[in-house]
Amino acid sequence: MNTIIFRTISPVLVALTLLFSVFVTLRGHNEPGGGFIGGLIAVSAFALYGLSHGVPTVRHAMRFHPMEIAGFGLFLAGASGMLSIVFGVPFLTGLWVFPTIFGVEVALSTPMFFDIGVYFVVTGSITSIALALEAREGGV
C-alpha cells in the first residue's frame, strides 16, 4: 500500500471524504443520510489516512483520542435531549428555531444536534477500533 501514487492522492481523498461526511450528516434529517452513516464515512477517511501515512500520523492529526471524541458525541446527544427541560416539554422533544443568517433561513433543531452527537460517537468509537486493527497489522 506504500506506493507514491497512493500517498500523494490520499490526503486529497481524506479531505474530500471528511467534507462529504459532514454533508451526508446534515442532509440526513429529511433525506437519506444522517449521523450514523456520516460517521462511518468519516471513519473510512481516517482509516485511509492510516493506511497511507501510518497510525501515529492519524492520531497526531486527530489531536484528541478517538474515544474522547466518542464521549463528546454521547454528551452532545444526551445534552440535546436535556435542553427541553428549560421549555417544559418531555425529554428528547424536538425543538426548532429558524434564525436568518445573511439573508438565508437556517433550520436549527435539537434532533440535528442529537444526530451530530451520533456522528461523533460513531466516528470516535469505530476509528478507535480501525486504528487499533491497523496498528496491530504493523501498518506503515
Partner: peptide, 16 residues
C-alpha cells in the same frame, strides 16, 4: 438515567 449517562460521557472525554 440522564445523569449517569452524561457523567459517563464526560468521564470518557477526560479518560486520561
Amino acid at each position: 438515567v440522564a445523569v449517569p449517562l452524561l457523567t459517563g460521557a464526560i468521564l470518557v472525554m477526560v479518560r486520561h
